[in-house]
Design a protein around this nucleic acid. Structure first.
Lengths: 331, 331
DNA sequence: CTGTTAGCGCTTTCAT
DNA sequence: ATGAAAGCGCTAACAG
């Protein structure tokens, strides 16, 4: 492997000083056209690329880069977050380096990212202690999970309020008994299912019968469909269903159609997430939208605050964003 | 805005030399536990974060970062590419900085990325000359578009062969006349529609009537549905439809169902892209899959080759990947 | 117009 | 166990 070509190599080969090479490469003036052309030619010949670390080290302009950790690129919720973050970050002058938890361990991903960025943002799944060890002092903005220790900041979503409002509106729309389809994702990391926060909020505000009508399904369209059939079989009187997320809700709506159950006439179905896809299917899926714009804006507010202090501030910063209810056709 | 804390500040405050601070922060040994603890404490107090440019400049380990430019995060094709790239890149030790063409100009995005990465990969839409000016010498791997000038490399998809094979198979499955739904995206950048390469390949291999049955639609599920209705109205004898991409194909399938046209019994519908989503709907959508794994693997092969030469090689490298036909239910 | 000097913030020698 | 010196590759500031 050939040694990397440096500015000195070019200077020597072109018979000029390093400074002249810099001038040629940065359109700096104070250099004759002839010299400039010759230097650039030699550079091209040798395959010279300025070392970006050296350049940024000496440069006055402080670049800002955020490391975004997302759960999975095959989950539209995360890709929509990533897209929103990318757009908002670009507008505010942040560059974004991404990593996904899918490949390799979260701790490894974090360690790799650390060399390239000024702070982390994202959905983390490690326990707080292990996370703190992994990020090793890097300022970290956690999404959808409150954490209060120095160097950590968070953006929470007030899902409890969103679910309360949704249940109230379902009642107002004539629903007699509510049911829920929860995600079985806890089964992926432990041998026993444990209820998600969404389920706990649901049970708090469920109505129509003393026993909460809940079934658990796999996190996919097909899983939502199967869970809907199970729910209807076990609790036939349920006429309003909160579904863990929109993908599962789409599956549930399809299953209802296949069963000949009218949506929303006989059963109202409500997802969570606010996916764009939910507005493209028929009927469109009503949803408790986890407002991505607000979410990433809040995260970037924190990032900007940290950057403004040149990353010397360490006390925890927090934001809370409210979900927005999107009443489309399915509920 | 406070000045950024440097290693010297910490050294002074802790009453030690810079080297001792380095030792404390990098678990380097040759330092007493007491000193180490004290230094780290002072660092935390002051909010010290090592400058990543200085660190990487002096570090022996050469980091490798790729800048990935995608078209849009609201298009599942691009997010699937991005996800595949991220996973494959992580495995090969590349970090990935992303930008999307959605926000701001492509040239600006490229200029911002340039400060952080060793090469570009992606879907570019600028004319070759403008692109060359924008990347300003940065090695660039172009996806899905051949370009042969120094410093540029490419990964092509042999869609022509894929479409030929697809048409042959449609004929074998009893299709009598083929039709196509093309994308109107050229209308976004110019006042007049111009046929996409996919249409040209289709017309080369269409069969069943002298006049090619083609309609143009907007690039979305709804657009695919509308186009399908128009196609059936104008060419009722068409019984095999190639659709520009999978999202539009899903819309076409839904439209067919709404019209009471059996899929695949009366009309066979075939998309392009190979989206995961196409396997989750009913009926599942047959498709000419633009093999993402192969695509990103090829791009990273080129990237590794360039890195191995320390980015001194400039002659164009090329790869071609074959699409894979996925015969699911709709065709 | 061109070259020399200094220094960005850090880690790697090499002394002590 | 700690510190002094040197240098990574580049650009800013000053000479000439």
């Amino acid at each position: 492997m050939p040694r990397r070509v440096t500015i000195n190599d070019v200077a020597t080969a072109a018979g000029v000083s390093r400074q002249t090479v810099t001038r040629a490469h940065n359109d700096m003036g104070d250099i004759s056209e002839a010299t400039k052309r010759r230097v650039l030619e030699v550079s091209a010949q040798l395959g010279y690329r300025p070392n970006r670390f050296a350049r940024n080290l000496v440069g006055r302009q402080r670049l800002r880069a955020a490391g975004l950790l997302v759960g999975s690129f095959s989950n539209p919720y995360f890709t929509e977050i990533a897209g929103a973050f990318l757009a908002a970050a670009a507008e505010r002058g942040w560059q974004v380096m991404m990593a996904s938890r899918e490949s390799g361990s979260e701790a490894d991903a974090v360690r790799m990212l650390a060399k390239h960025v000024d702070l982390f943002v994202g959905h983390f799944s490690l326990p707080d202690d292990e996370l703190a060890a992994a990020v090793d002092g890097m300022p970290t903005i956690v999404i959808d999970h409150r954490i209060s220790r120095p160097g950590f900041h968070s953006v929470e979503i007030d899902l409890r309020t969103g679910i309360r409002q949704a249940m109230e509106e379902l009642r107002a729309r004539g629903v007699r008994r509510t049911g829920m389809i929860d995600s079985s994702y806890s089964l992926r990391s432990s041998p026993t299912y444990s209820p998600t926060p969404r389920r706990l909020f649901f049970e708090e505000f469920a109505f129509g019968a003393p026993e909460p009508a809940v079934v658990v399904g796999e996190e996919s369209m097909a899983g939502g469909g199967r869970a809907f059939r199970a729910l209807m079989a076990e609790y036939p009187d349920v006429d309003g269903v909160l579904v863990f997320n929109d993908m599962m809700a789409i599956g549930a709506v399809q299953a209802a159609q296949a069963l000949g159950i009218g949506v929303p006439d006989q059963v109202r179905i409500l997802g969570v997430d606010g996916l764009t896809l939910g507005a493209a299917v028929h009927p469109t899926v009503s949803t408790i939208s986890l407002d991505r714009e607000a979410l990433v804006a809040s995260a970037l507010d924190i990032a900007d605050t940290l950057a403004a202090s040149n990353f010397t501030r360490t006390e925890s910063l927090h934001r809370t964003v409210m979900p927005r209810l999107l009443w489309r056709e399915s509920a």
